[in-house]
């Protein structure tokens, strides 16, 4: 095969470039989005610097998308097992309402209210997980039920109104904003980063380590890759699923606290359609909905990509309806690219 040697070399080079671009496709997509952002960014009125590239804008993206990011972190765990959790948006609403209710209406200290709100989310998640593990119900169905139930619960406990100081005369706090809400969403002394943003980054990095370096993480991949093989390897399928959905709910609860802080009120309608954003972030990152493939860093990428795109569109004052259309197109494009990679 003498004639083929030059061709072979060329092929090898092409193969190497291809495998490199395959591996870093997500990063490339992010870079592309950032470039787009720079090109289409209006200029800062004080300098020629594109508004998109200012630190403020960048931190804004993280801040605005921290709730979705936290939801997506939990969602990744569930999706790795080959499941899905549609209830996170509602659970976020429920937790936000519960948290505000405890702080604003009953005047309970945050040290009580915060764990309680997060726990409520975890309980909702565990219920879903238990239902799925015990009755072999489809995750889609079980969490769809929870999606309705949690929303109902939020409306029930709030009486259907937004929970904020002075909304009812019997509320403990009648005016002003509770201090905790302020601190969570204002920049820390010295660094221009809000605690909510930090919470998101910390959660994601922590779960990245958990998924990568613990037995629990490995079990998630095994279940998503082949449930029967995992069972025959001695993995407790039920328990692992309950833990995955439980954690997903717990993070939804945490995101609820962030949401209440950001809005400075507990809105029982909060977080509707957030589950879709969370799923989109995971999928755009490249984690497979079939389970068993993907990781947490990809979810960070995915969250940033949709965060940036939204930011670009809003900086350019693109109306809402176009924004939604663009989002749809981007999800399709991202998934198509991922499918390409697999064959």
């Amino acid at each position: 095969m003498k004639e083929g040697s030059a061709e072979k070399e060329r092929n090898a080079l092409a193969a190497r470039v291809k495998s490199w671009t395959d591996r870093y496709r997500g990063v490339l997509a992010l870079v592309a989005v950032v470039l787009l952002g720079c090109i289409f960014s209006p200029e800062n009125y004080r300098s020629d610097w594109p508004l998109f590239l200012t630190l403020d804008t960048q931190l804004d993206v993280l801040f605005e998308y921290s709730e979705v990011g936290i939801l997506a972190t939990g969602m990744t765990l569930v999706i790795l097992t080959g499941g899905i959790d549609l209830s996170v948006g509602s659970v976020l609403g429920m937790s936000a309402t519960l948290f505000s209710l405890m702080v604003v209406a009953y005047g309970l200290p945050v040290a009580v209210a915060l764990p309680a709100a997060v726990l409520a989310g975890a309980v909702a998640g565990c219920l879903c997980g238990g239902l799925i593990a015990k009755t072999k119900m489809q995750p889609f169905v079980a969490t769809l039920a929870m999606m309705a139930a949690a929303r109902g619960m939020a409306k029930l406990i709030s009486g259907g109104i937004k929970v904020q100081p002075g909304a009812r005369e019997w509320y403990a706090v009648q005016s002003g904003t509770p201090a905790f809400f302020e601190t969570m969403t204002s920049a820390l002394p010295g660094i221009p980063v809000q605690p909510v943003t930090l919470l998101f980054v910390f959660t994601l990095v922590f779960m990245w380590l958990v998924v990568k370096y613990t037995r629990f993480g490995r079990h998630l991949y095994a279940i998503g890759g082949s449930e029967e093989a995992a069972r025959l390897s001695g993995i407790r399928i039920g328990l692992t699923k309950v833990a995955a959905y439980g954690l997903c709910g717990l993070f939804a609860g945490l995101a609820g606290v962030c949401n209440a802080s950001r809005m400075t009120l507990g809105d029982p309608e909060a977080g509707s359609t957030y589950e879709l954003d969370a799923i989109a972030a995971v999928v755009i990152g490249g984690t497979s909905l079939m389970g068993g493939r993907g990781n947490m860093l990809l979810t960070l990428l995915g969250t940033l990509i949709i965060g940036y795109i939204n930011k670009i569109l809003s900086l350019n004052a693109v109306p809402e309806h176009y924004r939604l259309l663009a989002k749809g197109a981007i999800i399709v494009a991202a998934v198509l690219i991922q499918q390409k990679r697999r064959d």
């Binding site: 613990t214 490995r218 991949y221 890759g225 082949s226 995992a230 390897s233």
Partner: peptide, 30 residues
């Protein structure tokens, strides 16, 4: 295919899948 391999996992991870407990000390799987 159905009850043996975990297709997307690496060869190594497939091999250690049955012995993970013995390989974690105390929580970390290195």
């Amino acid at each position: 295919k159905e009850a043996g391999i975990v297709p997307p996992m690496s060869v190594l991870h497939n091999m250690t899948l049955g012995s993970l407990k013995a390989l974690t000390r105390p929580v970390i799987l290195t």
